[in-house]
Amino acid sequence: MRNCLIIVFLFTCISVTAQKSYTKNGTIGFYSKAPLEKITAENNQVMSTMDMQSGQVQFSVLIKAFHFKKSLMEEHFNENYMESSKFPKATFRGFLQQPIPDLSKDGQYTVMISGDLTLHGVTKNISTPASIEVTNGIATGKSTFNITLADYKISIPKIVKDNISETVDITVNCRYDKKM
């Protein structure tokens, strides 16, 4: 009986510690589609953590790591819109909504994530569906949602109104291949 208990406790211990995973090179892209111009940018240095048991998810995104096809756009993105020297990072802290699927088993899961997105110094609560695919115990999370720039006090001057969309699509793709 006691031996059994010991084994149970030990097992609990091992399985618990293996439930936090993270990545340092997740991808976040954004897409703005306006009448005159389509703008895309990608960031491949996204840091994100996921606690598979509690369902807590966090992101930390360096704004300057978003890269554009046009160098001047990248400059304006940082200078005029995101003001990345004042607000160098965007963050997200949220939870997978109950019931949290058993992410220790391989499979495809659809979840809802909600939490606080901080961007350009403004924090807003957002909710978005996401898919989590677990293969060989490694979770890959994907999500697409859109944000309205005005909500985050990112203003678009009238003169470029037809070049920049008021809402932009955000795509997230993170492979949580590191555990701790």
Binding site: F9, L10, T12, C13, V16, T17, Q19, K20, Y22, K24, M47, T49, M50, D51, Q53, S54, Q56, V57, Q58, S60, R93, M180
Partner: peptide, 21 residues
Amino acid sequence: TSFGCLSFAQTDTTDLMAQLE
């Protein structure tokens, strides 16, 4: 040991993110 582990599991990932950063 297992309590230690459990309590560790209950601290949220804020610490982990801080550590990563």
